[in-house]
Deep mutational scan, measured.
Amino acid sequence: KRPMNAFMVWAKDERRKILQAFPDMHNSNISKILGSRWKSMSNQEKQPYYEEQARLSKIHLEKYPNYK
């Protein structure tokens, strides 16, 4: 399994927050909201998630050096 990208790292927690506020919301609607919110974020706001992506990718590479 591939490591999560920056959007997926961010969306994991955000999806949970949306589901708590709107438990009956369909997954497709949540995904649209998440995509819209991510697009509206500045690069500075996204930076911690890109850093986490890099950390996860490094761990993945160490654990699975032959993964293609």
Rank of each mutant, 00 (worst) to 15 (best):
K58Y: 07
A54D: 14
N43H: 09
H26F: 07
P3G: 07
K39Y: 06
I18H: 01
N5S: 15
K68T: 09
L34D: 02
G35V: 12
K1E: 12
P3T: 09
P23T: 01
N5H: 04
Q53K: 04
W38G: 00
K58L: 09
A11N: 00
S28T: 10
A54Y: 08
V9R: 04
F7L: 02
K32M: 07
M4L: 06
I30E: 00
D24R: 05
F7D: 00
E14R: 05
K63G: 11
K58I: 07
W38S: 01
I59Y: 11
H60W: 10
K17T: 03
D13I: 04
P23V: 02
R16C: 10
I33F: 03
E52W: 00
F22Q: 13
S57Y: 09
K12T: 11
S28G: 10
Y67P: 14
H26L: 13
P23R: 06
R15F: 12
L34E: 00
S40L: 08
R55M: 05
K63C: 09
Q20Y: 03
K39L: 04
R15N: 00
F7Y: 14
Y64V: 14
Q20R: 09
I59F: 09
H26S: 15
H60E: 13
S31T: 12
D13K: 09
N66E: 13
E45S: 03
S28P: 02
M8Y: 08
I33A: 03
A6R: 06
D24M: 04
S42V: 03
W38I: 00
S28M: 05
L61A: 14
Q44F: 06
K12Y: 05
A54I: 08
K32N: 06
H26I: 10
Y67D: 15
P48Y: 07
N5A: 02
I18P: 00
P3S: 08
W38H: 00
E45I: 02
S42H: 05
M8A: 15
S57C: 09
Y64S: 15
R55L: 03
N29F: 13
P48W: 05
N66K: 05
D13S: 05
M4A: 10
F22E: 12
S31M: 15
Y49I: 03
L34R: 00
M4R: 10
P3D: 15
F7R: 02
G35I: 11
Q44K: 12
A6V: 02
Q53W: 11
L56N: 07
M4N: 11
E51T: 04
S40T: 10
L19T: 10
M41P: 03
K12Q: 13
S57Q: 08
K58N: 10
Y49K: 07
L61W: 08
Q47S: 09
N27E: 15
S31W: 13
P65W: 04
K1I: 11
R16G: 09
E14A: 11
N43Y: 13
I18E: 00
F7H: 04
M4Y: 06
K58R: 10
S42Q: 05
K12A: 11
H26Q: 12
Q20D: 12
A11D: 02
Q47Y: 04
P48S: 05
R16E: 14
P48F: 08
K39D: 14
E62Y: 05
A21S: 09
V9Y: 05
H60Y: 11
L34T: 00
Q53C: 15
K63W: 06
K17R: 08
S57E: 15
G35N: 15
R2E: 08
F7K: 08
K32T: 07
K63H: 11
H26P: 15
S57I: 06
W38V: 00
M8D: 15
E45N: 01
K32S: 08
I30Q: 00
F22S: 13
Q44T: 11
Y67V: 15
Y67Q: 14
K32Q: 10
Q47N: 05
E45C: 02
N5L: 01
H26C: 14
R16P: 12
P23G: 02
E62M: 06
Q47F: 03
Y67R: 12
K63M: 11
K46T: 01
E52I: 05
A6Q: 03
K17D: 01
E51W: 04
N43T: 14
E14Y: 08
E52Q: 06
L61N: 14
K68M: 09
R15M: 12
K58S: 10
S42R: 03
A11K: 00
D13H: 01
M4D: 13
A6C: 00
A6W: 01
R55I: 04
A6E: 00
E52F: 01
I33N: 05
Y64A: 14
K12F: 03
Y50P: 02
I30S: 00
N5M: 00
W10S: 02
R15Y: 10
Y50G: 05
N29M: 14
W10K: 01
R55A: 09
H60C: 10
H60G: 10
K17H: 05
F22G: 05
L61D: 15
R2T: 14
Q53D: 06
L61E: 15
P23A: 04
P48V: 06
S42L: 02
I30W: 01
M4F: 06
M41F: 02
F22H: 15
A54Q: 08
H60R: 08
Y49R: 04
P65R: 09
D13Y: 01
E52Y: 01
K46N: 03
K12M: 11
Q53H: 10
E62F: 01
S31H: 08
K68W: 11
E62I: 05
A11C: 08
K12C: 05
P48N: 04
I33D: 01
E52G: 02
K63F: 05
I18K: 00
G35A: 15
N5K: 02
E14V: 14
Q47M: 10
S28C: 08
S31N: 14
